[in-house]
Design a protein around this nucleic acid. Structure first.
Lengths: 329, 329
DNA sequence: CGCGTTTACGTCGTTCGTAACGATA
DNA sequence: TATCGTTACGAACGACGTAAACGCG
């Protein structure tokens, strides 16, 4: 068993069991990978993949277990390299972030811009994914950290650090009757109108849906879209009332009317999620400091060690309070 | 970075920074290790050890971190090999247990004997250690599991499975005044007598000591010894009253008088402790089944995955109830 | 016939052990 | 002077890439 063999194994698994593709990705030749895979299987004494003719067809049950372990090994090897690179004060590196479109578009730019000034040699890779895939990316070791939202409880996998709280807002075209009213709408009023919101709000576990269900109502989702820009566009086009994250409202959106929805929907929390036991490069800590200034460096490192589930992190700011904090820091 | 290099690194760290000794242990030559160590340091770009002349003197700060990660890597590599060996139905293997003398002498023999009948090709290595060292052995990956006692809360490290509860007993020479009495002694009476007990009972956090302190008494520890056999010997010799674990009393101890002490001291729990995320060979599960029949195989595996702290495991037996359970299983 | 895998082969790099050397206490 | 680590060297192994063959859709 070699680290190289394990690396090849993971590359094959991550390339849809296509050895040729995997070989390209690891900058090696296809016969090389084939042979190393065979040798690993010989040493272990069983097949990691089920063959169909000459091709790999599926992962065997035991193979999946081995792959899981191999990922841990490679992650720890990467950790060792990270320790080394930091000690050398190597300013180069990568920051790979898996996140949703909303975060990437509205919440992350400031922190990433700040980072690229302090660490111009660090290349940032944003991996936009659907909600469910974000954590999978992190678990597979394809990214260094994930940024993801949830209503209430933190995600199960990894170590979750609360970055900020946010609320939903209701968005209407400027001439819409709701915009003219002094009072914000009730859930019942909202249920009577066609809504435009995120794809994820269709799922039963969505906090939007649950808010309606709690009072025995069913929202009319006229349309869903993957990102807030699309939602705004279709609200402008008159398809319905938008329900989206407050972060998505920007100074330029003067042609839309925006109403608070704090009284209707529970607050959400955006989390920074890290692999437990992972080693963070110095610039990753800097990014966290930029994105969530209230997270003390020491506390982050302690949380990583898995010391405890830090449920009540002190002073998690609301979205609109973040700018002030960033300036102070 | 190679698995071999990491293995050598750990061997050196575990040999007190003596490369020659480490080389013997890994069945390689000393120059080989020297060179691999140097290459690893070159690749990482910093020293793992502080040199004093030519010899290794201490571990650098970063070196310690790397060693910790390397241990994880080697543990996962061992896990992969364990998966493979189990799949091949390989009946050979090792079972390395770190434990205290009392467990090794009185609690483990039955389970180990049973195991060596089902798996004659498995060689068992008992690593008797002092209380504090047992978990260190497990953490360093020198053993597969630890068996250790505590009063109340489970140990912090790893996954702890409760094996059984036990009480202390008071042991006197047969002609001692206490032996003739109908009533068991009180704490106050006991505090007035010279006691013989375990070394660990000297420590302030010992549950024995705490029981006395809770009522404002200080026991007179006339003598301490590392194991129960010694304590019994010195009780026979009249040095004092013995306070020891009930497991230590055996059918052959007819020349000693034994009194229950349930009413004086809190019950203790003996735990099986495993490294989180470790893969258990089939024979290790069999050993656990023998030693703690109430631990369901499925639950053990679930606990290993780190699903949750299973504080209230159902049906943890008392020591004297274990034989009945073992027969039933 | 293209795609993907295996087999075959030659080259190159690396590791390993032996042996000699050097430093330290 | 004994112990422990480094350097030097030659032999052997193993990994890698190129090229060709094989199977499958």
């Amino acid at each position: 068993m070699t680290l190289v063999q394990l690396r090849y194994l993971i590359a094959i698994a991550d390339s849809g069991l296509n050895i040729t593709l995997a070989a390209e990705r690891v900058h090696a030749t296809q016969p090389g990978l084939s042979k190393q895979l065979r040798q690993l299987e010989d040493e272990l004494g069983f097949q990691l993949f089920v063959r169909k003719g000459k091709s790999l067809d599926t992962v065997t049950q035991a193979g999946a277990q081995v792959i899981e372990r191999a990922r841990n090994i490679l992650a720890e090897a990467a950790n060792i390299r990270a320790i080394a690179a930091d000690l050398r004060n190597d300013a180069r590196g990568e920051l790979r972030i898996a996140t949703t479109h909303t975060q990437a578009r509205f919440a992350l730019p400031a922190a990433i811009a700040a980072l690229s000034i302090s660490y111009p040699q660090v290349s940032v890779h944003l991996q936009p994914s659907r909600d469910a895939e974000v954590l999978a990316q992190l678990e597979a070791g394809h990214v260094d950290l994930a940024v993801i939202s949830s209503a209430g409880t933190p995600p199960i996998f990894g170590v979750a650090l609360p970055a900020y709280h946010w609320q939903r807002v209701i968005v209407t075209p400027p001439r819409h009757p709701l915009a003219a009213r002094a009072q914000p709408p009730s859930l019942a009023e909202l249920a009577a109108l066609p809504l435009v919101s995120y794809e994820s709000s269709l799922k039963t576990e969505s906090s939007l849906r649950r808010a309606f269900e709690a009072v025995g109502l069913t929202p009319q989702i006229a349309m869903t879209a993957g990102d807030a820009d699309l939602i705004k566009t279709y609200v402008r086009a008159g398809l319905g009332i938008g329900v989206l994250a407050e972060m998505a409202m920007q100074p330029g959106d003067t042609d839309l009317h925006c109403l608070p929805a704090d009284h209707l929907f529970a607050a959400c929390t955006t989390w920074i999620v890290l692999r437990r036991e992972s080693v963070l490069r110095e610039y990753m800590l800097e990014f966290i400091r930029q994105f969530a200034p209230h997270l003390e460096r020491r506390e982050v490192i302690r949380a990583l060690a898995g010391d405890a589930a830090i449920a009540d992190w002190p002073g998690v700011p609301d979205w609109h309070a973040r700018d002030a904090l960033a300036v102070a820091a």
